[in-house]
Amino acid sequence: MEEIIEKLKVQIIEQLNLEDMEPEDIDADEPLFGEGLGLDSIDALELIVLLEKEYGIKIQNPKDGQKIFYSVKTMAEFISANQK
């Protein structure tokens, strides 16, 4: 799990163009949206692409995104549960 979390942080920074952010600046338990990193609706869509591109996981119902993308940790849990 720790490994996925660390990898995810790097991928999120890269994919979402989070300039001036280092992986250690992201708290795995902190909410990604709202206050946290200040992500918006396009970032949410971009995270769906990230899961598909990097992990081969397709989110069938976009409404599930809210739970999956709550934090880096919830994302990592979702990935480890769904990865083939």
């Binding site: 979402l16 163009n17 396009i42 970032d43 869509l45 971009e46 692409v49 598909e52 591109k53």
Partner: peptide, 9 residues
């Protein structure tokens, strides 16, 4: 095939 919403917009 990975169209990106943040590029497309």
């Amino acid at each position: 095939f990975f169209p990106s919403p943040s590029v497309f917009v």
